[in-house]
Design a protein around this nucleic acid. Structure first.
Lengths: 196, 196, 196, 196
DNA sequence: ACGTAAGCGAGACGGTACGTCGCGTCTTACC
DNA sequence: GGTAAGACGCGACGTACCGTCTCGCTTACGT
């Protein structure tokens, strides 16, 4: 492993090329079908150099996924920190826009040939978001008929399911509309909780 | 590939041993970590003989998955054919019992190290069930505020999500209770449709 | 191994078919390139039946070779037993005619892709012939300048070499002429011995 | 196949080890009985690495044979280039010494379990030598009673036959004596030609 | 600005697993 | 009792991909 001080320009260039190559290849043939030589070829670096930066293709994937999730959560995080109490819908739109921007990546990673770990990670992230949102909300003494973890898992899994559907169908609806529908579905599940 | 005519006793014994070995190994270390030699060893057959029955481990997985799904749907199918209009909950219980009986298999296949194709196949099967159920129901002129595919996908994905949660947590609730909760969640989504 | 009593017609038919198949295949692609399945296919018998008659392809080859040699030596043996003292040339002609009759077989077995064991066996047979011939001859007190084994080996190996050359070149000379030339060569080596 | 540029020291060491292993194994059990793993074990390299250098064991054999023949012809070639007109015998001695030095290799390769291709190659080489020698000689208007190719083939095949006999018998005669006897045999065949 | 340590290309290598070929044995069922 | 048909264990094959090492070249960084 090379010096972690990411200062060196060459290092940064190489790592970037590798990440881009991975993303391109995932879109082309899915993660499982990729071999290290593919990534190196695409990034126009030597295969051995790959191993100087990442343990194996799973290592590269993990780091790339993490960055993807960071990018994904960045706009939402910004919104969350603003004092104005946005409606949930407002948070969904930038979120979905990010997904749309990386459409084929997400389609691949979440689809049949996809990676269960990525889906799980994404769902965990969503569960975290829900948790935070609920914590922020005024404690409403709801008659919680269902245990929270069950409700939360149902909501996040359902949410992701719809997003997958949306991607599989090549986004038949505009972002705003999907956002609204998702919002409505969640409302139906947690009427007392999330109502603004 | 050997004669598919399942007449030969030896063939059937071998194939069965291979399937059982696969299931056991999946529970032990997950599908990806399995090599053909493992399966052959466990089934106490020669590695080459494996290839006389299945193209590769993916082929064996696929066939095994298909049989798993058949087993899964068998009890529900029986219920559906009976004239008495069972409540949805009644269908859920045998379904969940089958999952519970193969707990570790499903936990593995649907979990982080799991197989996205299996999850997708399972979800497709569920969507099919929902579709059939809806067709059987008297056409209620509901004010369907959401497009059916979206609703259906949300419901099935959420449903599976809860089942996964249940397995991940080592089934903290009895089958009946999970069934009830799932039923309630679906009711909340399609109030007019599924109410008996 | 089946009953050695070769009485059974089926057995004889099978064995014959196998031998013919072997000969045909040797001519086509040489012994080494032949697999048991080839022989069985050509003989239109089941592969397993092959093993009921011969241990493996080498076993079949050996028996076939032995028969070939018997056939080869038969006419010469007849001549040898007759009282009239034929010239050596007379013995060579039927011998070469047999080789010519099985031209492609000998070409293959003695050629580049050939079988060293067969060549050795053939040479041993020739050495035996020479030995016998010499024994029959009136003890001539020759000034044997060279040890007999050396002389004999040189003569037989050279003899076979010329036969190979003759086959490789697709028999550019008629049998009689080759016989004469071989005779002359041997005469040159053992002037006092073989002169009639 | 690795870079043929023989520059890399590791490559040369590996190839050498493989050749030596092959030679040792041929002497031990003959070429046919050798499997690639044997060669790799003996050379203390990985089996896969073998395939990075040679297509298969036949490829390795061929190259090794070629080098053997080069080594064999080297001393004779030197002699041929010298102006002094050596007697044929003088050329035979170093030649036979080389064979004696690799006795068991030649015994195996030319014997019953041997390799017909090697024998053929060796004989071709000898024929080439004879041809060259004859060309160099003053055209003697001999009464060539036999066609040259026949004579040449008889001589070379006989020559090799005697060498084989010599090896089979574990060299009962010293090199010089064999050389003399071979010389005499050839003299008897081509009296006018080769007499110095 | 420039010397040097770092990143990098290139190739050999050990090693695991793969999927296939061919062998020889065994069993069952037919004639 | 000979044969067909097929499953099976087994040894070996040649290939794909992996991760490591080593050796030089070149390039960006720190003084």
């Amino acid at each position: 492993m090379l010096n972690n001080a990411v200062g060196d320009l060459r290092t940064r260039r190489t790592r970037l090329a590798l990440r881009d190559a991975l993303l391109a290849l995932i879109e082309e043939k899915g993660f499982d079908a990729i071999i290290v030589q593919d990534i190196a070829d695409r990034a126009m670096i030597n295969r051995v150099t790959f191993y100087k930066h990442y343990r194996d293709k799973y290592d590269l994937l993990e780091q790339t996924m993490q960055e993807m999730l960071n990018e994904l959560s960045a706009p939402v995080a910004t919104l969350l920190q603003e004092p104005t109490n946005h409606a949930v819908v407002d948070k969904l739109v930038p979120w979905l826009e990010h997904v749309a921007a990386h459409e084929s990546f997400y389609r691949m990673m979440l689809g049949k040939e996809g990676n269960a770990a990525f889906a799980a990670q994404l769902r965990d992230y969503l569960e975290g978001m829900v948790e935070q949102t609920i914590k922020r909300m005024p404690r409403q003494s709801t008659t919680a008929t269902l245990p929270l973890p069950v409700l939360r898992r149902f909501a996040t899994a359902g949410f992701l399911g719809v997003v997958m559907w949306w991607l599989e169908q090549n986004r038949p609806l505009p972002v705003q509309q999907v956002a609204m529908q998702l919002h409505q579905l969640i409302q139906q599940l947690m009427p007392s909780r999330t109502q603004k």
